[in-house]
Amino acid sequence: MSDVIVKTTNLTKNFPAKKGIFRRSNGCIYAVHDVNLEIPEGKIFGLVGESGSGKTTIGNLLVRLIEPTCGRIQLNGQDILDLKKSEEIHFRRKVQMIFQDPYESLNPRLTVYETVAEPLIIQEKRSMHGNEKELLYALESAGLTPPQDFLYRYPHELSGGQRQRVAIARALIIRPKFVVADEPVSMLDVSIRVSVLNLMLELKDNFGLTYLFITHDLSIARYMCDWLIVMYQGKIVESGNTEEVIQHPLHPYTRALISAVPIPDPMVKRRRVELSEAMEDTSKPPLRCRFYPKCETRSPICEREYPEFNDKGHAHFVACHGV
């Protein structure tokens, strides 16, 4: 097994819940609760779940866009939460992020050159000029050919797919080790999604990257990821090898999720798992299983305590009393 590049211990993030016209703080939303991850180097690590599952929050925590309420994050064995200012810049060099919306993730007033060169300018204290060599290489690697045609264009002159490639070139230019990709293709047209996904696979090998791939789309997760983590309301419910999790899901939530994916084949009739629409209130701490109100196989113990995260063999972990 390869080395662990990113490790989190009891990672927790609560957001204050503000209500009423005076925005009084009352309680909080448990967005991510007690999450332990070990992301192996050189793999694509998938994080799947519905909206509100906390998957984007984890992504933002790992690149330190937000600070956790408690818990630890380690990168290559080094704790990244209590870095000094001077060390932080080294951390920023190793970790990059690709955002969901390519129409929003590029500054509309900067040219492609200025956008892609920015990490170099910040990290290596370079001047704005004279970075053409690196830039052309990064743009070409991101599939923008011929690259010199793109250098002085503005985002509004590019299509969605081209913008996302520019964002990828920007993320790669300082040769990071670990890239968080938050729904990188969900805003793109269907016919160009695959090419961006294939590009990301290629770049992983060429640049020796490790991805945290966040998505709500299980089919895309299956296409991309080596490992899969399924999240539900801020908790990990299942994790394991992607094929293992998708072919033999153990947690009732994962089973429901997989059964709900429409199949583009009129010959196949899918079996539906009917779930109740009841939801656990995320402003309560997870004392019982989060999935309890929806679960069909629940038993009294599920209401009393939160299930342990157990190995069911083949490195397939699941947090459910019923399995």
Binding site: R92, F99, E104, P119, Q123, I174
Partner: peptide, 19 residues
Amino acid sequence: PFVQSARVSGASDWRIILI
């Protein structure tokens, strides 16, 4: 997101404000 992207790249507060 483009401001967050700058932050992820290590841009300082003043750089984010000015650029």
